[in-house]
Write a protein that binds this DNA or RNA. Structure first.
Lengths: 398, 398
DNA sequence: ACCGAAATGAGGTACGCACCTCAAAAATGC
DNA sequence: GCATTTTTGAGGTGCGTACCTCATTTCGGT
């Protein structure tokens, strides 16, 4: 792909715009309506003329079709460079008349995080529908890898061009993913990586680094100690929890030896268990000063703290800016949230799936999902990924 | 604009994909190459048939042209809804043969921030060139609002369809922006808002909130005090500095009364001045424990600290993740960086300009630039917006 | 110089939509 | 019921590219 480089003005350039007028300006045959002035971009026909070859040859070069001499290829490429030609992707895609049906496969849980993610994907899918991309959300029973595998195996025949999957990497799932890829379907891992499946891409954050980030915040917020810190983790995506814990410990041990980090409490996704465990624990550890909640169950946690009269008295760091986390942050019940932008994640998913389906390169910078730190003070004004969907149903009919 | 809503599976839906098969599946007249299966989306012709009207009428309705009875409009819209039609924007834009020449106007300084921003805009412009958008970078002498105004006044006749502007809001500039808008050119403020110009949009962060964020971090990192904190600010964009300071003070006074925040030191963009001032100040304030660097000049600051043997001994918080800030963060010379994602900012700029030029609505969530907190532990692995440009010149020819 | 093979040219159709013109039909007013 | 206006239909062209076919030219080897 040959890109058009807008001329760059030197840093010491004068503040004059004149010399930036595009050289390739052509007179439109007929004047258009409105006051817009048009700068015609070079097309494939211009390349053909410039290179002194036929349109067919230009096409062969542009689309890497065989049967063109090296010399001719070079001539065409030179013309392309000379004219500053950029393929018009909208026209190209139209001509290809490609459309993309993608699947996003998520566990069927009621966790606010998964629901927010589903909403973000749905929103992104709506926008993407205008560019010939269709995204279907599929759910699987979270504790049933075989059902998931069965679902995945049905995808290729249902006309899907790509799959985004959020699931723990069990052997069954691993094989299912491999089978998908063997059939030519790109698979991207969502939120939690599937490192041993050969997935085409991972869209999410580095959980080890996220754990480290939580660690520094906890350590510094506690002033380096002394004190004790509780760590809670659900096991929906066990690997992620392990990595977060590892990152957290790494920093705490190295930089904050004065703080004692207690063993992880596994709450297995149950709110009741969590409340029980936390209450019990806090009774036994009276000088606990912080809690690192690695997984779900924030609601249960804040409730437990509330009941113990500890709301706002501990440094609480959790993951994922769900609606509840937002509220707790605003209310001072929790201190910081480590999160990822689900809107970005969803849009990135579609971009990556599409790029993989077309075998195109990615813009690594754009697809990089960042580990965000949210405090009450930098809470984004509008819901990040909200559960109220109908706020933006704007009409474009002018 | 009518959007196509991908069917949403209920949260309790079974894990079956079968019923998601699109109803509008048509048999392609001739089988295509490859194993892809095509799900044809409804087109304007389908609407015409479904609504029992002609193509011309559908077109009139879709493009809000006059001369159609209410009743007919409704019939068409019903058909659209029934078919789940979504306008193919790529085809629409192609047919309109619209192209967009945009200008990004930046001060011609050597600050790493402005340079990174310029690079980010250039990169975004390259990608956007494939969708009929051209972005030209223009620079103006930073201390010369009249030159800027003159530059701006020349834009409409140079065929520009929109302007993104990073500049302090002086009266001259304010008038120039108003004049642009009067001539129908959308103007978006970049990085620093231009609230009294009627600009169409502001792309950047809330500096007050950014200051507050810096405040919490400083306060908590210092354990609530006691201690003294220096505040440095250059005056390139004076309003931004004032807002950051205001936010910072707000939090410090309210939440960390034990910490004394000293008066802002204005360094006027000069590295030498900054070093001098900081050195002097630190000599007089021996129990200074933190520095909040609101503006440019990080290089000079770290150098001064180095010379004083204070590297890594103070809590230093600054703005903008420039290459130097990144290095200083990695080296432990500074503690935290409040920043905005310049890649996002640049892409957002183009999206917003284009939406404004077409008078289309925005996706507020996507255009929201976030206040990011970067610590050594959540430093994005690859340069955010780097100064090395040629790393990503990927070839798409398969 | 001749052959087969490779390279190139010429021209067409299609993609989905915007936008135009002109004629025909339907609705409206009186 | 007539004239007038409004609404609708039919059909065409073009946007920039992909992809196809078939003829023609050029090349490489002998």
């Amino acid at each position: 792909m040959h890109l058009f480089f807008p001329r760059r003005e030197g840093l010491s350039g004068a503040a004059s715009a004149e010399f930036l007028i595009d050289v390739h300006q052509r007179q439109p045959d007929s004047p258009r309506k409105g006051s817009e002035s048009f700068v015609m971009r070079p097309t494939v026909n211009d390349i053909a003329r410039e290179a002194g070859v036929s349109l067919a040859t230009v096409d062969r070069v542009l689309n890497a079709r065989p049967g063109v001499r090296e010399k001719t290829i070079k001539a065409v490429n030179d013309a392309i460079a000379r004219l500053g030609y950029v393929r018009d992707l909208t026209a190209a895609n139209l001509a290809r008349s490609r459309s993309y049906r993608m699947a996003a496969v998520l566990p069927d849980t009621e966790s606010q995080f998964v629901q927010s993610l589903a909403q973000a994907l749905t929103d992104a899918g709506q926008v993407a529908a205008t560019t010939r991309i269709e995204l279907n959300l599929l759910r699987f029973p979270p504790e049933d890898p075989h059902a998931l595998a069965a679902l995945l195996s049905r995808l290729p025949d249902s006309g899907y061009a790509g799959v985004a999957l959020m699931a723990p990497e069990t052997p069954v799932v691993r094989d299912a993913v491999r089978a998908l890829r063997a059939r030519g379907l790109p698979v991207v891992a969502l939120v939690s990586d599937l490192p041993n499946t050969g997935r085409d891409h991972f869209i999410g954050i580095d959980n080890r680094a996220a754990g480290r980030t939580a660690g520094v915040l906890m350590g510094r917020f506690l002033g380096g100690g002394p004190g004790q810190v509780l760590v809670l983790g659900s096991s929906l995506l066990a690997r992620d929890m392990v990595e977060r814990r590892r990152g957290f410990d790494e920093v705490m041990l190295r930089d904050f030896p004065g703080i004692e980090v207690l063993q992880s409490l596994e709450t297995h996704g149950s709110g009741r268990t969590l409340r029980q465990v936390v209450t019990e624990m806090l009774a036994n550890v009276p000088d606990a000063r912080g809690i690192y909640a690695m997984g779900d169950g924030l609601r249960a946690l804040t409730q437990a703290l509330e009941e113990l009269g500890l709301s706002g008295k501990l440094t609480v760091i959790c993951h994922e800016l769900t609606p509840h986390a937002r509220k707790a942050l605003e209310g001072g019940e929790i201190t910081a949230v480590i999160t990822q932008n689900l809107g970005h994640l969803a849009r990135s998913t579609l971009r990556v799936l599409r790029a993989k389906a077309d075998n195109l390169p990615l813009d690594a910078g754009q697809e990089q999902i960042r580990i965000e730190i949210v405090l009450r003070e930098n809470l984004p004004p509008r819901p990040d990924v909200s559960l109220d969907s109908d706020t933006d149903t704007t009409e474009a009919a002018a």
